[in-house]
Structures are given as C-alpha cells and as structure tokens.
C-alpha cells in the first residue's frame, strides 16, 4: 500500500447501503461463517429497541469521525467535482463556468491520455502479479514448518518499507552505469539495459518496486485469511483425497473469497494512486513514459495551476473506480447469493 496522505487507499469493499451487504465485503479475514452469524445476530438485534439507553451517546460517538470525514473527504470531493466545471484562476478573480471544457481538455491532451494509458498498464502489470505472488508466498510460507517465523518476517518486510527510501535504492540497483542488475546481466553476457532511461523499460522498472511492495502486502492479507480456514476443512479434504491445485481452486479460494476481494481492492487502489516511486525514480520521464494519473493531476494542479483540469482528471478516475466497485459487487453477489 502506498503511503498516502489519507487512508483512502486502504479500502476493502464495494459500496453498499445496508449492513446486509457487508457479508460480501467481510475483510481479510473474518471467517465467513462467523461473519454471517454475526450478521444474523445483527438483524435480530436491529429490530430490538435500545431499551433504557439514550440515542444521544451513540450519535455523539459518531460525531468526531463524522467531522473528519465531512471536512477531509466529502467536502473536498464535492469541491473537486464542482471545480471540474469551472476555470479556477489561482491568481484571484471569479470562477468561470466552462461546462465540460475541462473534461474535453484532459481527454484530448496527448500527455494526459498517455498518463491514463500508463496507469492502465501499470495497474495491469502490478495488480495481477502482486496478487498471484502474494497468494503463492502465503501458501508457501504457510506450508513451512521449521523456520516459519523467519520466512514470514522476511517476506513481510517489504510491506513496511518507506517508498522514498526504497525508490532511491531501486534507482541504484537499476542504474544504467554500474547498477547491480546490469552488472549481473553483464556476468550473464547480456548487455546493459538503461532501465529507467529507456521509454520501453522505465514503467516496468517503476512497477517492479510496486510489485515488490504490494506482493508483500497481499501476502500478509492472504496469510491472515488462510489462518481462518477451519482445520476441519483441511481434514475433510485430506480424507477426500483432494489436494494441491484442485484444493486451492475448489476449496481454499472460495472459502477465502472475502479475503481475495479485500486484497484485490487494496491492490487496485494502491496501483492507481502510485506517486512516491515515480516522483523519486523518474519524475514522470523519460518522455512521459512513467507519468501516471496522480502525477499528472499533481502537475496540472500544482505546476500548470489548471485546477479545473486537475479536478476533471481526478473525477474521471473516481468514476472508473466506482464502476469497478459496482462491477465487482455484482459479480460477487451473483456468485454468492
């Protein structure tokens, strides 16, 4: 997960209106059975009146969080949406209504389109591999007997890494001249690659840091999820003679479905919000080959001072994310209910 200013990255679910929706979104790790039990209990208690207690206290309990969410998520999001229909002169002066011009501007600017394309590519080459590697590592680490604490700790460490520090280290490892990776290739008789300086490899190289880190994070989630698979399941499958890949795809993964959803949504959000590594490793270059939606909206907002266009671009992203969220919910509820 990227280290972001807000916790927004750290989502796990699709939107829903009632607690009943939550069963598809139970996080990591709450076992399916127990979470549905809890839900059933919820519904039962939901019909019961809160006898002898005032409703004032619970409302007060919600107020601090409510203020935070209102001030730092909802209000900014609304302002951002509004701003995407205006030109906002930073030097002062009134806002001017421009309709969809900002959207038109960002969707016709080749640099922005390239950033959108890069974000798609980046997401494609980070999300699936980091989930697959994370799952594989969790299964491997889980199957280890002796040395398990060491293996687990080692594989968890990338998750804690400071991306600024690690981006610097990866920049050296992949340095064109004298970088470790090229030296290694040299020993293998392969010529040096200008990893970060060549438009063909720069995005991949930045993505490697992303995979390195989010594979570790996904692994943690899967690891926690695996711990919730009841021991009776393992015994039953053993008795039935189901094992290996079949067991994984037919038994373990379906049981861990909420965990898979959780890990997937987190991986998507951290991929579309990649910033630190790009900022430190390439600053979007060479030739815009590592510019992403976030670095592009940063550039539109804080370098070109075109707040309207920056807002429009952010909103397009939000629409896509909500779309993915709804789609995922539909697929899941189709399979689950």
């Amino acid at each position: 997960m990227t280290a972001l200013g807000t916790e927004n990255a750290n989502s796990s679910v699709t939107p829903g209106e009632s607690p009943a929706d939550m069963e598809i979104a139970a996080p990591a790790a709450v076992p399916v059975e127990s979470s549905t039990d809890a839900l059933r209990a919820d519904r039962a208690s939901g019909t019961r009146r809160e006898l002898g207690r005032s409703n004032l206290v619970p409302i007060l309990f919600l107020v601090p969080a409510g203020i935070g969410i209102l001030l730092f998520v909802l209000l900014p999001a609304v302002l951002s949406l509004v701003a995407s229909f205006f030109t906002v002169p930073l030097a002062g002066g009134p806002w001017t209504w421009v309709g969809l011009a900002n959207f038109e501007r960002v969707l016709t600017d080749p640099a922005v389109l390239k950033a959108i394309g890069n974000t798609l590519v980046y997401s494609a080459i980070t999300i699936v591999p980091s989930l697959a590697i994370g799952l594989a590592l969790a299964l491997l680490a889980n199957s280890v007997g002796r040395g398990r604490p060491f293996v687990r700790t080692a594989l968890f460490l990338p998750m804690t890494a400071n991306l600024v520090a690690m981006a610097v280290v990866f920049r050296w490892l992949f340095a064109f001249q004298g970088g470790f990776v090229n030296q290694l290739l040299g020993v293998a008789g392969i010529g040096a690659v200008n990893w970060l300086g060549d438009t063909n490899t720069s995005l991949l190289t930045v993505a490697l840091v992303g995979i390195w880190r989010s594979a570790s994070f996904s692994m943690m989630i899967f690891f926690a999820g695996l711990a919730t698979v009841p021991g009776t399941i393992h015994e039953a499958t053993k008795a039935e003679g189901i094992r290996g890949f079949t067991k994984l795809t037919r038994i373990t993964l379906p049981i861990m479905k909420p965990t898979v959803v959780f890990a997937t949504v987190l991986a998507i959000l951290s991929s579309v919000q990649v910033f630190d590594t790009v900022n430190v490793m390439t600053q979007g270059g060479p030739q815009g080959s590592t510019e992403t939606v976030l670095t592009m909206s940063w550039k539109l907002g804080f370098s070109y001072f075109d707040l309207g266009a920056a807002s429009a671009l952010s909103f397009l992203l939000l629409v896509v994310l909500v779309g993915i969220g709804l789609l995922q919910r539909r697929i899941l509820s189709g399979g689950h209910k």
Binding site: L294, G301, L307
Partner: peptide, 9 residues
C-alpha cells in the same frame, strides 16, 4: 473508494 487525487487539491 475515493482516491487521494480527488481530495488532494
């Protein structure tokens, strides 16, 4: 689900 870009500015 709100990405950081939306609220940043």
């Amino acid at each position: 689900l709100v990405p950081v870009q939306v609220t940043l500015i």
